[in-house]
Amino acid sequence: MLKVNVYVTLKKEILDAQGLVIRKAIKQIGYENVNEVRFGKFIQLEIDDKNKSEEEIKKEIDYLSDKLLSNPNIENYRFEMVGK
C-alpha cells in the first residue's frame, strides 16, 4: 500500500470566501500577523502499488486529480507520496 496526499486549493485569482472568514476569525482572536489564509481540501489515498512503477502511479494520480478531485477551472492541486 502506498499513501498519497492530494491537496486541492482555489486558484490564486479566485475569491476564497472561506479563507477570508477564517482570516477574520484569526485576527479577532488577536493574531494580527496572519495575513493570508487559503482554504482547501486534503484527500488521502491508499493505493495498491503492486506491479506498478512509481511513474505509472503518478500518472494515475494526476489523471484522478485533474478529472475528479479538482476542477481545473477554479482549483489547483498538488500531491505527495508519503510512503508505504
Binding site: 482555489l10 479566485i14 475569491l15 470566501a17 472561506q18 472568514v21 476542477n71 477551472n73 477554479i74
Partner: peptide
C-alpha cells in the same frame, strides 16, 4: 453540465458561505 464542460465556467461556494 459545468463539470462535464458542456457549459463554460465553474461554480464556487456562495460568497455568503
Amino acid at each position: 453540465l459545468l463539470e462535464e464542460s458542456l457549459l463554460p465556467g465553474a461554480m464556487l461556494r456562495n460568497n455568503t458561505l
